[in-house]
């Protein structure tokens, strides 16, 4: 499955704080994040989109073949949909999402490269 590839010149590009997927804010609002929708529940919630995605990202990856790509494995997105990903996204998900992740036993890894030391 492939995420919607936004037009590259769009100013409204946002990156998902959880998986780093880049979409336009409208796409996030209409379709949610194809990877993280069940947790973030972005669909139809502009607020949610604002808090769980960020315009402050850097480095764009064209994830063409995530399953076989080392780049996407390194980014821990190889199991996700094809699409554009950010190398780095600034910011953390809201606390309720962190709590949700914790309750599911998922380790939260912010995408701002702050945990790369290990």
């Amino acid at each position: 499955m492939t995420a919607v590839i936004p037009p590259s010149k769009s100013r409204q590009l946002r990156a998902c704080l959880l998986c780093g997927l880049i979409q336009s804010s409208n796409d996030f609002r209409f379709n949610g994040c194809p990877n993280c929708e069940d947790i973030l529940q972005l669909k139809d919630s502009a607020d949610r989109v604002m808090t769980c995605t960020s315009t402050y990202f850097e480095g764009m990856i064209a994830g063409i073949d995530p399953e076989n790509s080392w780049v996407l494995r390194w980014q821990r997105t190889s199991k996700y949909v094809r699409g554009m990903y950010a190398v780095r996204v600034r910011g953390r998900v809201p606390e309720d999402v962190e709590a949700e992740l914790e309750s599911r036993g998922i380790k939260y890894r912010p995408r701002d490269l702050s945990l790369d030391q290990d």
Binding site: M1, C36, D38, L40, R76, K79, K107, Y108, R109, D118
Partner: peptide, 13 residues
């Protein structure tokens, strides 16, 4: 994993 499982998050970089 085509939903956020974070299963890869446990793997050290």
């Amino acid at each position: 994993a085509v939903r956020y499982t974070g299963d890869m998050n446990e793997i050290p970089q």
